[in-house]
Amino acid sequence: MKRQVPLSKITRSRVALAILLCLWLERGYPESIPNKVNPDSVYIIINSANPQRQISQTGLNAIFNMRLRHWNDGSPITVYVLQDEDPLHKTFCKQKLRVFPHQIRRGWNRLVFSGTGQAPLVVETKEEMLKQVMETPGAVGYLSGKDLTSAVQILEIQ
């Protein structure tokens, strides 16, 4: 019995600490980014002027496969990706598009070399990805949660 008292005290203080931490974290992330951002997950990011907030899984695949070339409001889509061998690109392909990076590369090559489509624009770093999506109207790309800022918008997958 004696032991339970300090234990509950510890629990209470831990809860308080967790709440404080959450509040602090919430302040750490800007308002436009949902509170549930996981620093290790991959997020689809779009230019903040884009009114669209959601897309279906098939729509997302169509965009990154370079098949869907305009947003719901008709404005053109500009797709940015990291290099094929970039670990974040590999994670993005597997987790968000559910394909292997070499499959998506083959798809782009088929479009480019048959004249029926274009390849996405390749950026070399996460910083460049953020900059391009920030500055290009209609841009779409991806970043991990820890690199997100309020200058870009998250595109939710329905």
Binding site: R69, H70, S75, P76, I77, G115, G117, Q118
Partner: peptide, 9 residues
């Protein structure tokens, strides 16, 4: 090869 996306579609 060269390609030009004159309009989104």
């Amino acid at each position: 090869n060269g390609s030009w996306s004159a309009l989104p579609d």
